Simulated assay, not measured.
Amino acid sequence: MRSIALLTITVLVLLGFNGATASPDLLKPYKAQYQVSRGTFVIGTAEISLTLSDQGAYNYRGFTTPVGLAAVFRKDEITEESAGQMINDKIVPERYRYHHKKPKKLRQVNLEFDWQTKRVTNQIADSNWSMEIPTGTQDKFSQQLSLMLSLCRGEKMAEFEVADGGLLKTYRYTEVAREAIRTESGEFDTIKMARHKEGKPSNTAIWFAPSLNYLPIKIAKHEKDGSYVMELVSITWETPAN
C-alpha cells in the first residue's frame, strides 16, 4: 500500500498574502475515481477530490483502499490531504495530513506551515520537529496542484521544494512526450511528464490531459517489487464552495 500511496501523490513562488482569489480559468473543483494496478491485476482504488472556495481556499484529498485479492491480504486505508490558499494563482499549503490505517496500527503525519516565520512543523507519533522553509515550499500532495498550474501556463519544466520526511527535498518535472492515452474514462491527448527526486533518475511518469483542465489521467511508478499504474476511471466536475 505504500507504493499505492506514492502514486497518489505522485503532483512555487509565494507572492504575498494579499487575499487575491483564484483565476477561474485555472484549477476547477472535481472528484475523480482511479484504479491502481500491478501488472494485469487491479489491486486498489483511489478517490481524489479538489474543493475550492470563492475566496481561494483549497482542500485536496485522496483516499486509497485495496480491492480484489489485495483486499484479502491487506486491509489498509490511506488518506492524504493538503489544505491552504491559492494566491495569485500559486498554491500556498497551510497544513498536510497523512493517515495510513492498518488493522493493528495507524501511522499519522501532520504538517503545519507558518508562512510568517517561514517554518514548517511536523508531528509523527510522539516526535515533533520544525525546520525553516523557503518561499514557495510545497507538501507532498500540494505539489501536484502546483504542477497542474505550471502546465496551465504552458511551462514544460517545473521544480518544487517539498517538505518531505523531515527534510526539504527538490522535485523536478520535465516534459518528455505528447501522447494519446486511452483509459476506462476515454481517450485523451496528454502531456507526459517525468518526475525526478533529488536529482535521481526518474522512476515516475505522469500523463496530464489539457482537455480535462490538466488533470492527471495516468501515473506509472516503478518500484523494486514491481511496476504500479494508476488510471482515471471517471470524473465529476463540482461547483466552487462559497
Score class of each variant (00 low, 15 high):
R2C: 07
I4N: 03
L7R: 01
L7Y: 08
I9D: 12
V11T: 13
L12K: 03
L14D: 15
L14A: 13
L15D: 14
F17P: 09
G19W: 09
G19L: 04
A20M: 04
A20T: 14
S23N: 13
P24I: 02
Y30G: 04
A32F: 06
Q33V: 15
Y34N: 07
V36N: 04
S37N: 08
S37H: 10
R38F: 10
R38V: 12
R38L: 08
T40E: 05
V42C: 02
I43C: 09
T45R: 09
S49T: 15
S49H: 03
S49Q: 12
S49A: 14
T51A: 06
Q55T: 15
N59V: 10
R61W: 00
G62T: 15
P66S: 03
G68M: 01
G68P: 10
L69C: 01
L69W: 11
A70Y: 04
A71N: 11
A71T: 09
K75N: 08
K75M: 03
I78K: 00
Q85A: 06
Q85E: 14
N88C: 00
D89L: 05
V92L: 08
R95K: 15
Y98A: 14
H99E: 15
K104I: 06
R107N: 14
L111K: 03
L111N: 07
E112S: 12
Q116G: 08
N122C: 05
Q123R: 14
Q123K: 14
S127Q: 12
S127A: 07
W129K: 11
S130W: 00
I133G: 06
T135I: 08
D139Y: 00
S142E: 04
Q143R: 03
Q143P: 06
S146L: 07
M148K: 06
M148N: 11
L149A: 13
M157D: 10
M157S: 14
M157A: 12
E159M: 06
F160Q: 02
E161T: 15
A163G: 02
A163I: 05
D164V: 06
G166T: 04
L167N: 14
K169T: 15
T170E: 08
V176D: 05
A177R: 02
E179N: 09
E179I: 11
I181C: 02
E184W: 00
G186H: 01
F188H: 11
I191S: 02
I191V: 15
M193E: 10
H196I: 01
H196V: 06
K197Y: 07
E198N: 15
K200Q: 15
P201K: 00
P201D: 01
S202C: 01
N203A: 03
T204Q: 01
T204C: 06
I206A: 11
F208Y: 15
A209C: 11
L212M: 08
I217R: 02
K218L: 08
I219F: 05
A220P: 00
K224S: 14
Y228W: 12
V229S: 08
M230Q: 12
E231I: 00
V233S: 03
S234M: 03
S234V: 11
T236G: 05
T236H: 09
P240L: 02
A241I: 10
